[in-house]
Amino acid sequence: MENLKKELKEKIIEALNLEDLTPEDIKDDELLFGEGLELDSIDALELIIILDKDYGIKLDDPKKGKKIFESIETMANYINENRSK
């Protein structure tokens, strides 16, 4: 689980081009949207691609992402339960 979280942080930094950040800068329970990392709706779409490409999870409704992408913690939990690769 810890490995998955670290992996997720790295992937997010790369996909969203957050070049000033390192995985250590992102706390597991930090909010990704709104406050915290201040990601927006375009970032949410990028995260949906990560789920699909790297973990074989397809989200057909971006609204479902709201709960899943709350934090690294929630994202890792969701991936753990639903991944197909």
Partner: peptide, 10 residues
């Protein structure tokens, strides 16, 4: 046509 990301399109 797989795994395209929205940012380059926008």
């Amino acid at each position: 046509e797989e795994y395209l990301s929205p940012t380059p399109f926008i």
